[in-house]
Design a binder for these strands. Structure first.
Length: 435
RNA sequence: GGCCCCGUCGUCUAACGGUUAGGACACCAUUCUUUCAAGAUGGGAACACGGGUUCGAUUCCCGUCGGGGUCACCA
């Protein structure tokens, strides 16, 4: 069986992460079966549909790396002749009728409800059954040229040869209407799979008031698309072993029957953790390039120097801003507080003695190249160990950084170079003497 | 409210009648360490409740409770 799925967003809002997940699962399922996934825009709501939203969805799909085949034509608004044909057929057989009750005084087309029981087997949820009577004669079009959702979906899915409809659970109860229309038209039904919803921490449907919901926002914050895709996949399906997996691995291991039944709360912290994992394996040169692009205060050389410690601290690229602030001593002279030079459990006298000694050791050191942190460590380690590492290394680190918290002094010194290292130690020494 | 779906640590989940109920995120502790971060090690933490079925229920059935979805001339 040739599998054909579809991702049919209505361009009435920015690309939502819930939609993104639906697209992902449709793609993965189709890819697994060697089929295709079509994208079509359901823009029957002319008032709310906007080109800007179409573009956002398209850009989001591209960014996430979810491939699709564009339907032709792409929009439902370009297929009105089709719907008209089906609508006429429905009216002709009496399955639908015109009713004079249009909002603006015109007519609408209602579907004549046979009031039967509709059952279908959901790939995720199993046997489903609905009594359609309470639906009444629902409206399927404003008029012959203006179809509504249910009619348009049924017509398109049929025309495009859709074999599997994978969508959110919020569409579960829509299925009965669509099946009724299909039966009236004599169409073959697709297979259905209704996925659980993505929930906010308050267990409600995830929406804007709960924080970031548009794919674009995640891009702007500096998440990696692979991480978002991976996390979204996790919110509905569990891989055989590891939680971190690529799209290709997901396709290989995917099983629609194993998709979860209950809604999952979106956990931003776990997404961050995953993102950090992906950031970790980013090649050095790309990482450095990204850093210099996103944090212009550092040139490439400094960024390369800082890369190892940045990798430990950046969860999402947006963290770079705060880090650039925190690491300002790498590019500018720190302001020192004389009271803090000696650190805890030591005093100004011994602090200046240690700094004086370190300064001399650096001066006398055979090497002038400070580029390797270990070189610096080797110079002072013996002395620091003998005198007490805290007492010796804290003043050094503080003299170089002006901060109570920072990476180790060897790394800072190596980034600064010998000259600046010496001058900062001297500055601290002078400050100590003056106070 | 009617109809429908769902119910394992705080969160995401594993288990497909017999397990000390496993893992991940988060959290806490210890360790490493001059501080921070990262790392290593360890820890606390769950089967919603009540009936059945069964030699035996987290697992199967029913009910209760709880959560969610849907009831548009939106999709």
């Amino acid at each position: 069986m040739h599998v054909v799925t579809r991702f049919p967003p209505s361009p009435t809002g920015y690309f939502h992460i819930g939609s993104a997940r639906t697209a992902l699962f449709n793609y993965v399922f189709a890819a697994k079966e060697g089929g295709v996934m079509y994208l079509r825009f359901e823009d029957t709501d002319k008032e709310r549909s906007k080109k800007e939203y179409e573009d956002d969805i398209l850009a989001g799909l591209a960014w996430l790396g979810i491939p699709f085949t564009p339907a032709a034509p792409l929009r439902q608004s370009e297929r009105v002749e089709n719907y008209r044909v089906y609508l006429h057929a429905l009216i002709k057989t009496g399955a639908a009728y015109e009713a004079e009750e249009g909002l603006a005084g015109g007519k609408v087309i209602r579907f004549r409800n046979p009031n039967t029981r509709v059952t279908f087997s959901d790939l995720i949820r199993g046997e489903m059954g609905f009594d359609t009577a309470e639906l009444k004669d629902f409206i399927i079009a404003r008029n012959a040229d203006d179809p509504l959702y249910h009619l348009a979906v049924v017509a398109d899915d049929h025309d495009m040869g859709i074999t599997h409809v994978i969508r959110g659970e919020d569409h579960l109860s829509n299925t009965q209407r669509q099946i009724l229309i299909m039966e009236a038209l004599g169409f073959e039904r697709p297979r259905y799979a209704h996925m659980p919803l993505i929930l906010a921490p308050d267990r409600n449907k995830l929406s804007k008031r709960h924080g970031a919901v548009s794919v674009n926002e995640y891009k702007r914050e500096g998440y990696l698309p692979e991480a978002l895709v991976n996390y979204l996949a996790l919110l509905g399906w569990t891989p055989p072993e590891k939680e971190k997996f690529s799209l290709g691995e997901m396709i290989a291991a995917f099983d629609i029957g194993a998709v979860h039944k209950s809604g999952a709360i979106f956990d931003a912290r776990k997404l961050e953790w995953l993102n950090k994992e992906y950031l970790r394996e980013m090649p050095d040169d790309i990482f450095v390039k990204e850093v210099t692009r996103r944090a212009p205060v550092w040139d490439e050389r400094t960024a390369a120097k800082l890369a190892p410690l940045l990798r430990e601290r950046v969860g999402v690229w947006r963290d770079l801003g705060a880090l650039a602030e925190e690491f300002d001593y790498f590019s500018a002279e720190p302001k020192l507080d004389p009271a803090k030079v000696s650190g805890k459990g030591s005093d100004a006298t011994s602090a200046s003695r240690h700094l004086q000694t370190l300064h001399e050791m650096f001066m006398k050191a055979a090497v002038d190249d400070f580029s390797d942190p270990d070189t610096i460590k080797n110079i002072v380690w013996g002395y620091a160990t003998a005198e007490g590492r805290g007492a010796v290394l804290w003043p050094l680190r503080y003299a170089l950084s002006g901060r109570e918290k920072s990476p180790d002094p060897f790394l800072i010194a190596s980034s600064l170079g010998k000259e600046k290292t010496l001058s900062r130690v001297q500055t601290a020494l002078a400050l100590l003497k003056a106070s």
